[in-house]
Simulated scan of single mutants.
Amino acid sequence: MELYFLGTGAGIPSKQRNVSAAALRFFNDQGSTWLFDCGEATQHQILYTPLKLSKIDKIFITHLHGDHIYGLPGVLGSRSFQGTETPLTLFGPKGLKDFVQTSLSVSGTFLRYRLEVVEVEDGAVFKERNTVIKVKKLVHGIPSFGYRIEEENQAGSLQVDKLKALGVPPGPLYGQLKEGKQIQLEDGRFINGKDFLGPCKKGRKIAVLGDTRYTEAAIELAKDVDVLVHEATFGAHEQELAHQYYHSTSVQAAKVAKMAEASSLILTHISSRYGENADRLLNEAKEQFVNTYLAKDLWSYSIQP
């Protein structure tokens, strides 16, 4: 998996940062890509990455503020104009369906692919292929959600050398053993596939949160994740301002990562007031949680198995 940050600013675009959007690309699934939020000019940012609109098959909207959804009609329309016919599912808060339908209808935009809009609620759980998506409501001025993506554990590698030492020839039997099944060999012996599998490969876990004040719900979503993507609109000394505008500080984001025992934290949704001085937020967070990164537009982060 790889996370691409297409927009890492807050509220309005700046010369350094576009508004919110991030993409999660799956390398073991023909490049399938999930988009998280879709601020203005997201499709333009995609042009500077290896991502393709045709490969986006899921879009998760955290909340309906303009800096998170105003790029959506353009992405949906361009995906169709390019000839893509594969289905796309859109997840987000109540009201998202009306926004999409109105935008497409008023602009006379026809989609050549099937579009499904799923309006999420607190506690919702979805299963997509070998991945589970969990939804929790956060604390913002309007309904805002966080998404937890859990990859299922995978069976360990088949220990071929051991099988060859027992005289088990390569072929269809290896497939059955890989599935953990018991088989009988031609000489009458029974062997159990589970005895020839290496350690289980632990599924990856990612939490991508929408705009929010510090909240226990964020800690729950981020529990034991490999990567937590959390907003850091304000600096440590502007906690009251962050609370007033329903946002978080760099230190609060780090506190969530620490309490959740996350492996790494990525700060995003950075206010334009910091301009070239955004590293201040990174340094503040690192004092609380060392493994912290500051996202920048067009920066990517690899999530290894």
Rank of each mutant, 00 (worst) to 15 (best):
G146L: 08
Q154G: 07
K202E: 13
R148C: 03
V160N: 11
G175F: 14
Q184W: 05
P199V: 04
G188N: 02
F196A: 09
K162H: 09
I149D: 10
G180Y: 02
G167P: 08
E150Q: 12
G175L: 11
I142C: 12
D187H: 01
N192L: 11
L163C: 06
N153L: 01
K181S: 00
G141M: 11
E186I: 02
G188P: 08
N153I: 02
G171F: 14
G193F: 00
P143G: 07
N192A: 05
G175W: 12
F190P: 03
S144P: 01
E150P: 01
K181V: 00
F190H: 09
Q184C: 01
G175R: 14
R148T: 02
P143F: 14
G156S: 13
Q184N: 04
L185I: 11
G203H: 10
I149M: 10
P172V: 13
K164Q: 12
L197Q: 10
G203N: 11
F145E: 03
E151F: 14
L163I: 08
L173H: 01
I183F: 09
L173T: 04
P172E: 06
K202R: 14
F145G: 05
G188K: 03
A155P: 10
G193S: 05
A155I: 10
C200T: 15
A165T: 06
K178P: 00
G198H: 04
P143R: 08
G175Y: 12
P170Q: 13
Q159F: 01
R189M: 09
I149V: 12
P199S: 11
L173I: 15
G188E: 04
L197G: 06
L197S: 10
Q182D: 08
I191W: 07
E152G: 05
V168N: 00
L177W: 01
Q159S: 05
A155N: 10
Q176I: 00
L185Q: 01
S144Y: 09
G156Q: 13
I142F: 13
K202H: 14
S144K: 04
Q159P: 04
F196V: 13
K164Y: 09
G203Y: 15
K201S: 10
K181A: 03
P143M: 13
G156I: 11
G141V: 07
L185P: 05
G156F: 15
K194Y: 02
D161L: 05
L185E: 06
K164D: 04
G175C: 02
Q184D: 02
Q154P: 00
P199C: 09
Y174C: 02
C200D: 11
C200I: 15
E152F: 15
L197P: 12
P172Q: 08
F190Y: 13
E150A: 02
Y147E: 07
L163A: 07
Q154C: 03
K202Y: 10
F190A: 05
G188S: 06
N153M: 05
Q154N: 09
D195Y: 06
P170Y: 15
P169A: 12
G171E: 01
V160M: 14
P172G: 01
L166M: 14
D195N: 15
G167F: 14
F145S: 05
P199I: 07
K201E: 13
L158Q: 12
F196D: 10
R148K: 13
G175S: 08
K194D: 03
K201I: 15
D161E: 12
G198P: 03
I142G: 08
G175H: 12
K202C: 01
K201F: 15
K181T: 00
G171A: 08
G156Y: 14
G188Y: 06
S144A: 07
Y174F: 15
D161G: 02
G156T: 07
I183H: 03
